[in-house]
Design a protein around this nucleic acid. Structure first.
Lengths: 166, 166
DNA sequence: GTTACACTCACGGGGCGTAAAGGTGA
DNA sequence: CTCACCTTTACGCCCCGTGAGTGTAA
């Protein structure tokens, strides 16, 4: 973990420099403080910077990461292990961006980009696997609904006819 | 798993009348016997019929239900609670079908069908919620890939042009 | 002195695994 | 009788957190 951390907290009044304490983060994102520490412990969140006294100071970037975890977990039903994979892929891409040097020649840049594409492709494959299964299920439900509806229409026509033809 | 049940159950009788014992079901579906009993305990599976000695006898219908559980769980990442909801919706629909009487008048039939539609709609809503989230995520990933690719194309042109125009 | 945070220890539920001790059936 | 297969009871484990208690920082 090369954790090239955020600006070191200058002593004195550092808290409001675009950084947030754990309580603020917890409230904003909708998780408990305990959960934030838990994620950190499990390696899902990089250790944030700290104040002199030891209080955690989260950057906006950190907060986005927490939100991403919540999204992957709540909405998509990923396990923390899967989420960690996803985040690590994100990290790789971030790392690639940090390594980027404008003075590189085009081939080096292309190679870097190709690596980023490969990582993103991997993420997408994971997502699409679940996506396909869900779409199939949705289609089946839709079919059923349509069959029910057409049946209802038939019956309504029969109703209006007031008399059935045997 | 030590997989003790590897001795070929090649004495493959269809256990009398299209019913199957727990071990056969477990092997066919790819879950353990423990899991089957657990699902039953938790109300995900209706108690199957039994032999005189107490052995469970699963019908084809029961087996389909287990397969459905596996699908919802593995592929879609539903929790057992969500799966139970889904299955209960299925049960309601099954019940509606069993209650169906051809001698009903059209209005009664329509009402029954409307109830089935409502239940199916509920299931679909559950699915689509997850679906939307996944599609959004997929879209974001796709965008990124496209941006990377177009960047690569730019660089390749630059390469060929041999000279840059700042 | 009252928050807000730190850290540690533990406990809890979901989803099973697995072992124990014994009954069933071809 | 044997031997695979089944029964229930019950404790264990990993995952994903929640609380409680105690101590320190603001």
């Amino acid at each position: 973990m090369p954790a090239p951390s955020q600006p070191p907290s200058v002593n004195g009044r550092a808290s409001r420099d675009g950084f947030f304490q754990i309580g603020e983060v917890a409230e904003r994102v909708g998780v408990t403080q305990r959960t934030l520490r838990f994620y950190e412990e499990k390696g899902l969140l990089r250790p944030p910077s700290r104040m002199e006294g030891g209080f955690r100071l989260y950057s906006e970037e950190d907060i986005r990461r927490v939100e991403r975890i919540k999204q992957l977990q709540d909405l998509l039903g990923f396990t923390l292990a899967e989420i960690k994979e996803m985040l690590e892929a994100d990290d790789v891409k971030l790392q690639l961006r940090l390594e980027w040097r404008p003075e590189w020649d085009a081939e080096a840049k292309i190679a870097q980009l190709e690596r980023a594409i490969a990582v993103t492709d991997g993420q997408q494959a994971l997502v699409r696997q679940k996506l396909r299964a869900l779409m199939e299920l949705d289609g089946k439900l839709e079919d059923k609904i349509q069959r029910y509806r057409s049946w209802v229409r038939d019956l309504e026509r029969e109703c209006l006819g007031t008399v059935e033809e045997v």
